[in-house]
Nucleic acid binder design. Sequence first.
DNA 1: TTTGTGTGTCGATATCACTATTACACACAT
DNA 2: ATGTGTGTAATAGTGATATCGACACACAAA
Lengths: 142, 142
Amino acid sequence: MPTSTRFAVATHILTALAVTEGKPLRSEDLATSVNTGAVVIRGLLSRLAEAGLTRSQLGSGGGALLAKAPNEIRLLDVYRAVEDTELFTVHRQPPCAECPVGANILAAINPVLTRAQTAMEAELGRTTIAEIAARVNAAAHV
Amino acid sequence: MPTSTRFAVATHILTALAVTEGKPLRSEDLATSVNTGAVVIRGLLSRLAEAGLTRSQLGSGGGALLAKAPNEIRLLDVYRAVEDTELFTVHRQPPCAECPVGANILAAINPVLTRAQTAMEAELGRTTIAEIAARVNAAAHV
DNA sequence: TTTGTGTGTCGATATCACTATTACACACAT
DNA sequence: ATGTGTGTAATAGTGATATCGACACACAAA
């Protein structure tokens, strides 16, 4: 049950904005760095802006900017901004309601799945874009 | 991204086998309870048998059986047996190797993703099929 | 005010993983 | 020997995602 590439790409975007410290980056520039189309970037920027993580400078010399300090953007915020499917998917078609197991299995496993997702999200909440940017800077500075 | 229902269905299968305590269940019976085709069940049973969680009784009156005690099967074992994609997918096409960010972003975020996945798996390791079966029994016993 | 630039969004196409279904050879129990 | 059930292959269908081209709108600069 994989996540989409949106989370990884969105983190890439925010990290790039953090590394270039306040200089607006065009969606086309970001697309080059990510190696994808500009439309993909714009779609993600739209979600990130809606979540209050980025803003856009229109007109010539414009581009995307961070709306918050890098150390105030947790990876969990990014995850929630761009990922919309549940981590665990259950039965596509509801199981047999007459069977003892089918009628109760979903209620029985849901608490466990919720706990597992919460544990994962808690871990994502411990890292910020600032830390990722620092790691990228250190690696690129060699 | 088409997320897989395999984990939920496999848990359903094992719970059903645990609830019926040693009586072989045919893949067709399990398919009815899950509300899917028998081939889907067989495919999952094949993976579960390979992981040492189930075994099959051939011939008339046969079917699937648990190969271990329900309290020795953790949900983590089920997850690993049937789910083969990574939890987090990164860039589909590798990012620009010339850009400072593109060249280092994957190495920078990988440790975080690994920690998040580990936290999720640790949570799945705390629950066994026996507990799920008990919860289903309690709900069905009303 | 005019011009240029970049965003934001729509629609169509391609791609991938997963599910569903049919079919059939093989193994075991009675 | 017969019937039953498993295991696997092949195929088709589905849903989410990614990719590409195009265009209206907003802002900045001259």
